[in-house]
Design a binder for these strands. Sequence first.
DNA 1: CTGAAAGCGCTTACAG
DNA 2: CTGAAAGCGCTTACAG
Lengths: 338, 338
Amino acid sequence: MKRPTIADIALRAGVSKGAVSYALNGQPGVSEATRERIIAIAREIGFNPNSAARALSGAKAAAVGLTLSRPARILSVEPFFMGLISGFEAELASRSYALTLQLVDSPEQEVEVYRRWWGERRVDGVFVSDLRDGDVRIPVLQELQLPAVVIGGPGETGSITQVWSDDAGAVAEAVRYLSALGHRRIARVSGMAELLHTRARGQAFDEVCRTLGFESAVTVAADYTGEEGGRATRQLLMSASRPTAVIYDNDVMAVAGLSVAQEMGLRVPADLSIVAWDDSPLCRLVHPPLTALSRDIADYGAQAARQLLDAIAEKPVDDIEAAPARLTPRGSTAPPPG
Amino acid sequence: MKRPTIADIALRAGVSKGAVSYALNGQPGVSEATRERIIAIAREIGFNPNSAARALSGAKAAAVGLTLSRPARILSVEPFFMGLISGFEAELASRSYALTLQLVDSPEQEVEVYRRWWGERRVDGVFVSDLRDGDVRIPVLQELQLPAVVIGGPGETGSITQVWSDDAGAVAEAVRYLSALGHRRIARVSGMAELLHTRARGQAFDEVCRTLGFESAVTVAADYTGEEGGRATRQLLMSASRPTAVIYDNDVMAVAGLSVAQEMGLRVPADLSIVAWDDSPLCRLVHPPLTALSRDIADYGAQAARQLLDAIAEKPVDDIEAAPARLTPRGSTAPPPG
DNA sequence: CTGAAAGCGCTTACAG
DNA sequence: CTGAAAGCGCTTACAG
């Protein structure tokens, strides 16, 4: 059986196609009785409006896009993005919006995807993550007038709305906590240095350490992978002035760091304290469970989705500061040795 | 500036809209000279065909769908699906197909999404994962005649094509390897029992253990989460006839199991050997690195995508048996104690 | 080889 | 409150 159309419904209800459209979309123009009859028929024959026809006649595509420009080997173990996606979905599903996902290799390729999507009218808006300094995507988005919401900042995004959380404050909280435990040599293993939130965390880290009068505040740049996180940890632990605590920019690197420390015969937390960022279930998978800066990533995603949907509907939107990450102490932190 | 259409191109090239369509789609009906001129203009003005118009006039939606019916807390740390998705994308991108993702709560909800997507003509086909016995999705897919490919089986899928790998053989390989090391008490921590491939692995496990004359072959059912994997491990290690080796159905549970064993004072691999399934970077994140049944999940996904695209194009498709998982010995396996 | 036209299934002014 | 019609931007038979 062919997929039913509004013409089929109109025929059965004895009204025009226009009336069916009005009835189904909750528009005025039909009597309540007619509306109910039409809705009943639509339900009975399992009608779903052809999204292409709808989009073509001026309505929205009812889809938003997400491009991810990290290598697959990072995405597969990095819990952040699936968390974010599940937050998106919660909002999108309730409005019958679809999520279109595309993996890309670079911000340049991302830009091409935006152009194509918008030209094809395939999406009504996009989520932009991993904001960089002087991000090439921002001017293109503005030129296209493609509704968008930037996740992670704050940064220069012109008229494009942002959702961000106070990374600087969270870093400060973690450092102060370690300081209160007695640590004076704290190091940091960071994610990609070109990402804006990495930069923000780094600055805050340096600042707080200076304020507290620490002798050193080393940051080793890594890339969110376990390999790099492990390598950075090894480097730190072999240095002359070995840190007594390390803060990692995500939990994958923290888990790798824990493993390296144990391999090198250090006890965590007795010899080395570890703090992870982004408190996924990964942190409770290992022994000891990791102290982490936790935040509700799904909620973060849900807020971003609401912003994007508002932007698409041309409602006024303001930047949103999401709840900051809170420190969740677990077994991987303790006073320093000696 | 408005998004350009074929009418704009036709005007500038001095031809009809039909000619533009033929030229851009590589159809006969225009001279080579005209074709090149049209293509040059299209490129110059940054033309992208409106996907809605295209879909409406009989062409494909150029999108495929994936529904995921596992809880977000599993998806976020389970590397399998992102691996699969990156495999899909590699194939889809080369044909400019989009991937539409939707998280759902149950197979029943999945069925509803299929009906809606197909009714809306939003996708041309779908990926079906986590096949169950008497899966409710199969008859609906057949009724709708929605092109689909089932990932993981083999099972009863009627006319729907499948991509699967030899789980039974992989289990046998792992058990024989442990047996060769001297283990006689091997246990298994499984994923959701209602999934067909879980069942297949379980049967193979029982069979091989019986063939080898093992005194016991316990399987504890879990659900792929770290919590359950840890709980199952604790249960096994506290039992009177403690196993000397445990095989896990995914790597998240294996990592959790390792952590529980270490917490209980057991040395891995001296006191307990651990084998993980699905060799994500997670396995090399921990210490000792985990022996695993590895397979190329991205390639698995790429094969499934090719199958689906062929099914959509109404080409003949056969079931594909992907390369089986191979045992990759690492530091978590050794001869049993004593 | 090329043009004019119908049609896909909706939405939305425009008349009655 | 309702109907008839135009139009969204493509594709594709059908004539020339």
